[in-house]
């Protein structure tokens, strides 16, 4: 990267102890040059948006051409898929499917992420917690997600509980893993400095350790949210009477391939949308906390 050729403004001693002589403007020409040079096109917002939409546009075009001659039974045209969506919306099924699925994702994600944060904190901060808990959790993590389904259905029946719990299991592990690992690797020197200034226990955690791991926590949450959507569809595919996963099975049974296409596209859009929201939050957090 061209970035590497920029002078390191933080080299100690390049700056004199006369604070005022530190010149922040000095580094700017380099970046301006970068913006005019290699990064010119790829740093423009319109170009990024347009280029990102290029591949979907090509896929859509190929799809249009391919479906033009075929039958709706194997490959519905984009128009058919759109109409299937409109039809679902008019019947009121679309709103209820999306609502129940989003509700399950948010509930499961909230519970799983909350547990992941707290247990991750215990394992990351306490040696004893690490020794006691991490082997068991590592073993549980190795269990394939679908293996839980029969047990959950027997225990919690085919209700909301079993689905939310499955999603919570999916959201738990990314958060738990990233939080415990990040806490273990918090700069020891910073922690010691915190202790030297009289901080300990919860105050030390809130002042030093938590802010230090916030960027990793957000990355973990982002992964967990993606996992939550995966587990949602798994849960709904197997046993449900509502939701996007149920709509997939239902459409499969009725041979409504247009609806299957529609739901898959909808899942992609919903997943990308929630991920982007967390991504924006992540960017803000990284600027704020590092």
């Amino acid at each position: 990267m061209t970035y590497q050729s920029e002078p390191d403004e933080r080299v100690p001693g390049v700056v004199t102890t006369q604070g005022s002589s530190y010149d922040t403007t000095e580094a700017r020409p380099g970046r301006a040059f970068l913006a005019r040079g290699t990064g010119r096109l790829t740093s423009r917002t319109w170009f990024v948006l347009l280029a990102g939409a290029l591949l979907p546009a090509i896929v859509l075009a190929v799809w249009l051409i391919a479906s033009a001659g075929g039958t709706t039974a194997t490959l519905p045209s984009p128009g058919d898929v759109w109409l299937a969506g409109v039809d679902l919306a008019q019947r009121g099924l679309l709103a209820s499917d999306v609502a129940i699925s989003v509700q399950r994702v948010l509930l499961g994600f909230g519970i799983g992420a909350g547990l992941g944060l707290s247990i991750g904190a215990v394992v990351g901060l306490s040696k004893l917690g690490d020794i006691l808990l991490s082997p068991t959790l590592a073993a549980l993590r190795a269990v394939p997600s679908l293996a839980w389904v029969p047990l959950l259905i027997l225990w919690f029946k085919i209700g909301e509980d079993s689905k939310v719990i499955l999603i919570a299991i999916g959201a738990f592990f990314p958060v738990y893993t990233t939080v415990s690992a990040a806490l273990r690797h918090v700069d020891r020197q910073l922690v010691e400095a915190g202790r030297a200034f009289g901080l300990n226990g919860p105050r030390l955690f809130v002042t030093v350790q938590l802010p230090a791991v916030i960027p990793s926590v957000i990355s973990g949450l982002r992964l967990a949210l993606a996992q939550a959507w995966l587990f949602l569809v798994a849960a709904e595919l197997i046993a449900s009477s509502m939701g996007l996963g149920f709509r997939l099975v239902d459409s499969q049974n009725n041979g409504r391939i247009d609806r299957i296409f529609f739901v898959i596209i909808l899942l992609a859009v919903l997943g990308k949308l929630t991920d982007s929201l967390v991504g924006l939050f992540e960017r803000w957090v990284k600027r704020r906390w590092s």
């Binding site: 933080r10 100690p12 001693g13 390049v14 700056v15 530190y22």
Partner: peptide, 9 residues
Amino acid sequence: REISGGMAQ
């Protein structure tokens, strides 16, 4: 990160 080593010290 916006100040020099001497200033940080």
